[in-house]
Amino acid sequence: MDGLFKENDRTDNYAKELNIKGEICPFTFVRSKLALEKIKPGEILRIIVDYEPAIRNVPRSMTDQGHKVLSINKINDTDYEIIVEKGGKK
């Protein structure tokens, strides 16, 4: 990460962080899903987007596919974070 979001970071232990600013749907979900495939069930992925519709589309698709959306936050004027826990057998 480039440090831009440091002050907004919480203390959660993310298994992976994905910055896909500049990406639009459906590729926001495609890239998020590929990132989730690299972590284990129960681990957490932090996704950063700047495409506003993605904060609805990505969580909906994540939920549909059995993952848990923990939170969606606006972190500055342009960016949002989506925090997802990977579903499946731990």
Partner: peptide, 17 residues
């Protein structure tokens, strides 16, 4: 490849794997 196979990757039955 991410763009080319996006509609497959989205499918729960396919995915990146």
């Amino acid at each position: 490849q991410i763009k080319r196979y996006a509609r497959h990757i989205i499918l729960p039955e396919v995915g990146g794997e």
